[in-house]
Amino acid sequence: MGLGFSWGLFLLGSIREFLGAGTILGMQLLPTEYNPLVIMILPAGAFIVLGFLVATMNKVEKG
């Protein structure tokens, strides 16, 4: 259960970091001209991304 929780956190965190700052684990992946989506850094964005992740899992499970 702990591993699942960690994986969920990692996934959520990477999506938010990538879209909100263009980096993953500190490495700048998107060019600096990229205007980051500030909502991703805010806690509100976490909820919304989590909602979409749950929807994705529903789609994967149902097929």
């Binding site: 805010l42 509100a44 964005g45 909820f47 919304i48 909602g51 979409f52 749950v54 994705t56 529903n58």
Partner: peptide, 22 residues
Amino acid sequence: PQVFKGASITLITAGLLSLIFM
């Protein structure tokens, strides 16, 4: 839509509510 029913739409609503309260 079927994939969003249940927990998913609730979480998205919570996120939007948080934005509103900001």
